Amino acid sequence: MGQLRVEKVQEFIKQEVSKIILNDLKDPRIGFVTVTQVEATGDLRSAKIFVSLMGSDEQKAATWSGLQKALGFIRSEIGKRIRLRMTPDLSLHIDESLDYSAKIQELLIKIKEDEVSQ
C-alpha cells in the first residue's frame, strides 16, 4: 500500500480519536488527554495510538485505565467514521516525549544559569 495513503489514514485516525476522546467518551476518570501520534502498519491492520496524559500520577493512572476500557468503543467508532475494508486493531501507548522535552528544557535553563553565575 502506498506510504502516502498510510500517512493520510494515520492523520485521519489521529483526528477522529481526538474527537472521540473529547466529545464522545463519558467516563469521568478520563482527564486531559492529547493524541500526539498514530503509527499504522503498511497494511493498515493495526495502529498504535500515542497519547500524552496530564495531571498528577493518580489522575494519569485513572485516565489510562479509563482509556483502556474505552478502547473497544473507540475502535468501533473509528470503523463507522473511516471507510476501510478492515478497521485497524488499536493499541494505546503513553507518549513520554513531552515530559522528556520539559526535563531537557529545565536542564538547559539550569546550565545557562550556572554559566551566568560564574
Score class of each variant (00 low, 15 high):
Lys69Glu: 13
Gly79Lys: 04
Arg83Ala: 00
Thr41Arg: 05
Gln59Lys: 09
Ile82Pro: 10
Ser76Pro: 06
Gly79Asp: 04
Leu22Phe: 13
Ser52Ala: 08
Gln68Met: 11
Val38Asp: 08
Ala47Thr: 00
Ser18Pro: 06
Asp43Ile: 11
Pro28Met: 04
Asp43Gln: 09
Lys69Cys: 06
Ile74Met: 12
Leu71Ala: 10
Ile21Ala: 07
Asp57Ser: 15
Lys60Val: 02
Ser76Phe: 04
Ser46Met: 05
Trp64Ala: 15
Asp43Ala: 08
Ala61Leu: 11
Arg75Met: 03
Gly72Asn: 14
Ile21Tyr: 13
Lys60His: 00
Ser52Ile: 05
Ile20Ser: 12
Leu84Ala: 06
Met54Cys: 09
Leu53Glu: 13
Arg45Trp: 09
Arg45Tyr: 12
Ala40Pro: 08
Thr41Val: 03
Thr41Ser: 10
Trp64Cys: 14
Lys48Ser: 00
Gly66Ala: 11
Ser76Asn: 14
Arg81Ala: 12
Arg29Thr: 01
Glu58Ser: 08
Ser46Tyr: 07
Ala47Pro: 04
Ile30Arg: 01
Lys80Ala: 00
Ser52Pro: 06
Lys60Arg: 05
Ser52Cys: 06
Thr34Asn: 13
Leu84Trp: 04
Phe32Val: 09
Phe73Gln: 11
Gln59Tyr: 10
Ile49Glu: 09
Ile78Ala: 03
Thr36Tyr: 02
Val38His: 04
Met54His: 14
Lys69Arg: 13
Leu67Tyr: 01
Val51Cys: 02
Gly31Ala: 12
Gly42Tyr: 12
Ser46Asn: 07
Gln59Leu: 07
Arg45Ala: 01
Thr34Tyr: 12
Asp24Ala: 07
Ser76Thr: 13
Gly55Pro: 15
Lys19Arg: 15
Asp57Thr: 13
Leu22Thr: 12
Trp64His: 15
Arg81Val: 09
Arg83Glu: 01
Gln37Cys: 05
Gly66Val: 06
